[in-house]
């Protein structure tokens, strides 16, 4: 039985020295193939669909700041033409922080509504610019209130106290973002 003896002595083994190399190769492939581009943009929540005979809730005229954008990208705020988009930010801030002083602006920050209305041929770019200015106005107001109350800017406050639960966010309750997107006018020429 010399044959059987010989087989016993050689211990079969899979060479595992190159295992790490193979794994590294695969790793590098996936590293290269991965795209870590975080999607960023302006977040909005659309209003839910109205039921057949349901009327939109009544809103006081003064609480609504109307922003109108026409085909050429010209902007009207409360029927007044504006020169630069920067003015939108100031108007929105004035509207939110009015607290009932000026009868043309909102009664209180939580009742303030910004209404954006576009024409069908308004370029999307202008709409985004306007929306951006409104968002920036809200950001500035929220930052200001957060500094007054908590001594930090809004993002820091939110990350510290209301990270998981929007219900705890006091500033969000005080100054809710109410942006209404009105259906556009047919405008001249119509859409595509």
């Amino acid at each position: 039985m010399p044959l059987a003896e010989r087989r016993k002595r050689t211990e079969p083994e899979i060479p595992s020295a190159s295992l790490a190399d193979i794994a590294f190769l695969l790793l590098i492939f996936f590293l290269v193939a991965t795209t870590i581009d975080v999607d960023s943009g302006i977040g909005m929540v659309l209003p839910p669909k109205l039921e057949e005979n349901q009327q939109p809730p009544p809103i006081k005229e003064r609480n609504m700041l109307k922003i109108l954008v026409n085909d050429q990208g010209q902007v009207l705020v409360e029927d007044r033409p504006i020169v630069s988009l920067r003015q939108i930010r100031d108007e929105v801030k004035k509207h939110i922080l009015n607290n009932g002083q000026d009868p043309n602006y909102a009664e209180s920050p939580d009742k303030a509504i910004i209404s954006v209305k576009t024409a069908r041929n308004t370029p999307y770019r202008v709409y985004i610019d306007v929306l951006d200015e409104i968002k920036l106005a809200y950001r500035e107001v929220r930052d200001m209130v957060a500094r007054q109350r908590f001594g930090m800017d809004y993002l820091t406050y939110r990350n510290r106290f209301a990270k998981d639960d929007p219900e705890k966010d006091e500033i969000r309750k005080l100054i809710p973002q109410k942006i209404s997107l009105a259906e556009p006018d047919p405008g001249t020429g119509g859409g595509q």
Partner: peptide
């Protein structure tokens, strides 16, 4: 950037019909 708003609004109306209300304008 230069798409007409009418088309965007039509899409948004459809999204309201579908009930997908959380949107994000990618910029």
């Amino acid at each position: 950037r230069d798409a007409p708003m009418g088309l965007v609004t039509d899409v948004q109306q459809e999204l309201r019909e579908a009930g997908t209300l959380r949107i994000n304008y990618s910029t």
